[in-house]
């Protein structure tokens, strides 16, 4: 997609551009991640896994994408 149509977001503190109209699920997939194995927070609100496909990525969104790692 043309760069002009893309939106600017932050993911895990890093700046990213994704095509306009992308859903959160699509964005996660575009990053090479399995939406079933991560949890997504959008602007400090958890996005339920069931709605990842319905929420559209907006310009300026701030995302945290997390998963389980080893810990005590």
């Amino acid at each position: 997609m043309d760069v002009d149509d893309s939106v600017s977001v932050r993911v895990n503190g890093e700046h990213r551009r994704v095509p306009g109209g992308t859903s959160v699920a699509e964005m996660v997939n575009l990053m090479g991640l399995d939406p079933l194995r991560v949890a997504v927070e959008r602007n400090l609100e958890v996005v339920p896994r069931s709605t990842l496909g319905q929420v559209t990525v907006e310009d300026g969104d701030d995302y945290e994408i997390v998963h389980f790692v080893g810990g005590g």
Partner: peptide
């Protein structure tokens, strides 16, 4: 287990 950011620079790392 702990909850931490996914490494988006290397998403195929073993989990």
């Amino acid at each position: 287990v702990a909850v931490r950011r996914v490494n988006i620079a290397d998403p195929k790392q073993p989990m």
